[in-house]
């Protein structure tokens, strides 16, 4: 085969990035607003198990956030289909609610909202 792969556009834009200061603990609750049973729910490598339709988990405290955010994903299984999504990294946050509003199995898409409380 063969290819010459090249950059699409050029133009430099340097942005100052604020240091991302992670705290030591983070409290997370996952709410299932769908009519489906969600299994194998995992966020930041922390298992939340099974969540019944229209139910929620307890508040779970995550420790060692610096390590947990190295896996910034929400995973779950629905009807034996496993899927996931990147989530925003917490910044100076105490509590996060993940509201799962819809699961589109054919598109492997989790529709959710992440609410952060400082």
């Amino acid at each position: 085969m063969i290819s010459l792969r090249f950059i699409i556009v050029t133009g430099l834009l340097f942005l100052w990035q604020e240091p991302c200061l992670m705290q030591q603990t983070l409290v997370v609750r996952v709410v299932n607003n769908t009519n489906e049973e969600l299994n194998n729910v995992m966020i930041y490598s922390t298992p939340f198990g099974q969540i019944k339709p229209m139910d929620s988990t307890a508040f779970i405290t995550l420790k060692n956030i610096q390590n947990e955010v190295k896996n910034p994903m929400l995973y779950l299984s629905c009807k034996n289909i496993n899927m996931g999504s990147y989530v925003s990294l917490p910044k100076d946050v105490d509590t996060i609610y993940f509201l799962i509003n819809e699961v589109k199995i054919d598109k492997r898409l989790i529709v959710f909202k992440q609410i952060e409380i400082k």
């Binding site: 290819s3 090249f6 950059i7 133009g11």
Partner: peptide, 19 residues
């Protein structure tokens, strides 16, 4: 003649980019 071009997201960071 097609090659997949690369998006250098370290320099091409504008939502108004030609990309």
């Amino acid at each position: 003649n097609i090659s997949i071009p690369y998006w250098d997201s370290t320099v091409d960071q504008s939502v108004n980019s030609p990309l």
